[in-house]
Design a binder for these strands. Structure first.
Lengths: 200, 200
DNA sequence: GTTCTATCTGAACAATCGTTCAGATAGCAT
DNA sequence: ATGCTATCTGAACGATTGTTCAGATAGAAC
C-alpha cells in the first residue's frame, strides 16, 4: 500500500479514479475525504493534487468519463430496421452497460447536486443526448403505429427509470444471467410501450 | 428569523425537520451542517440538540416518519376485487403520494448509505413491507392468469423504480394534472405486467 | 410580582476538512 | 556515476465540523 517518495507512477491516476469512484458511490461525495481516497491508493493526500486540481474536478472527471463512454457505446450497439428492433437493442444495451458499472451509474445520477453549476450543465447536456436517442426511437414507433404511448417524453423518462432500477437488485453472482435480465426488462419495456411480441 | 433566548417553541421541532428535509434533499446529508439547519430555522446550532440527540437521529427520524406514513396511507388506499384493480389503486396511490413528497422520497432512497447499520436495518424492514404489498398483488394476478410476468420479484422492483422516476420530471405547475400523470403511469404499469385494458 | 423551567445563546472543544508547499526520493537520461 | 525531473512525503494553514454546556431569557404558574 504505502508508496515511497519519488516512486514514479503512470498508474496512480487510474487508481485514484477507481478509489474515488468506489468511495463516492458507497458513502457519497461529501462524506468522503481526500485523505480516505489517498489511503485507498496508498499515498498521502497531497499527492492527489498531482492528478486533479481539486476534489470537485475529480467528481466531474468521473461523471464525464462515464457519460462519454455511455454515449460512444450506445452508438455502437443500437441498431435495427424497425423501431421495435431498435428499442430492443437499446434496452439490452442499457441493461448490459449499467449492470457492469453500478458505481458509475449511482454517482452519475446521485452526485449531480454536488457539481458546480457549470459542471452540472455539461453533464446534463450529455445525459440529455442519451435520453433523446431513446425518445427518437419511441417517436418513430408511434409515427409508424408500432408503439402505443401517450407521451414519448414521459415514457422515455419512465423507461430509463425502470431500467436503472436493475442496479438496486442485480448481483452478478445471482441466479440470473445478464441475458436473462436483459430479456426480462425487454419484456417489460416492450409491453409498456404497447409493442406486439414477435414483430421485431 | 433570529430567535431570542428563552422564547418557548412547540413549533421548533417540526421546523427543524422541515429545514433538515429540504437541505438534506438539496445538498445531501453529509454536505449539510447543523449550523445550516439551525440558520434556516432561525436558531443557533446548540438549540437543535434540545430536539435531537445527534445528526444521525435527525436523518433517521425523517426517514422513519416517511416510511410509516407511506405504510399507513397505502393500507387506506389500496383495494379492489381483482388483481388489476388493486394494481391500479396501488399505482395511482404511489404516484399521488410521492408527487407531493419529492424531498422525502429522495432522502428515503438516497441517504440510506448514511444510516448506521442498526438504523438502516429498521428502514429496510419498512421498505420491504411496502414492496411485499405490491408483489402480493402481482402474485395474485399471475395465479389468476390476469398478469403475464416471468418474475414477480423483479417486476416489483422494476415497477417501483419506474414509478419513482416520476419525481425526476414532474412539477406541480407543469401541463399535466396529477390524475393525468397517474393515468400515464397506470397505462405503462398495466401494459408492463401484461394486463388487459378495461378488465378492471 | 415572584418563581420556576423549558428554551435558546454564545463560546468553546477536539477533530477533520480541502488545499498548499518545501523538501525528500527514485528512476530515467546521459 | 551524475544530474534531472516527475512524484511523493509530511507538516502546516485556516476554515468548518458535530457536539457540549454554563449562563441568559421569556413566558407560564402561582
Amino acid at each position: 500500500m504505502a508508496r515511497t517518495a519519488g516512486s514514479h507512477s503512470d498508474i496512480t491516476g487510474p487508481r485514484i479514479r477507481e478509489a474515488a469512484l468506489t468511495l463516492f458511490a458507497r458513502h457519497g461525495f461529501a462524506a468522503v475525504s481526500m485523505r480516505q481516497i489517498a489511503a485507498e491508493v496508498g499515498v498521502q493526500a497531497g499527492a492527489l493534487y498531482n492528478y486533479t486540481p481539486d476534489k470537485q474536478s475529480l467528481l466531474f472527471d468521473l461523471m464525464q468519463r462515464h457519460m462519454e463512454s455511455l454515449l460512444s457505446e450506445v452508438a455502437r450497439h443500437v441498431s435495427g430496421a424497425t423501431p421495435a428492433a431498435r428499442l430492443e437493442s437499446f434496452v439490452r444495451f442499457h441493461i448490459g452497460f449499467h449492470i457492469g458499472r453500478p458505481d458509475e451509474m449511482f454517482i452519475a445520477y446521485m452526485e449531480l447536486r454536488n457539481l458546480t453549476p457549470d459542471n452540472f450543465a455539461r453533464i446534463e447536456t450529455l445525459r440529455r443526448r442519451y435520453e433523446d436517442m431513446l425518445e427518437a426511437i419511441l417517436q418513430d414507433g408511434v409515427a409508424q403505429g408500432a408503439f402505443s404511448v401517450p407521451d414519448t417524453k414521459i415514457a422515455t423518462l419512465g423507461l430509463i427509470a425502470m431500467l436503472n432500477g436493475v442496479n438496486t437488485w442485480y448481483r452478478p453472482e445471482g441466479r440470473l444471467s445478464q441475458t436473462q435480465v436483459e430479456g426480462i426488462y425487454w419484456d417489460m419495456a416492450r409491453q409498456s410501450v404497447g409493442a406486439e411480441q414477435g414483430v421485431v
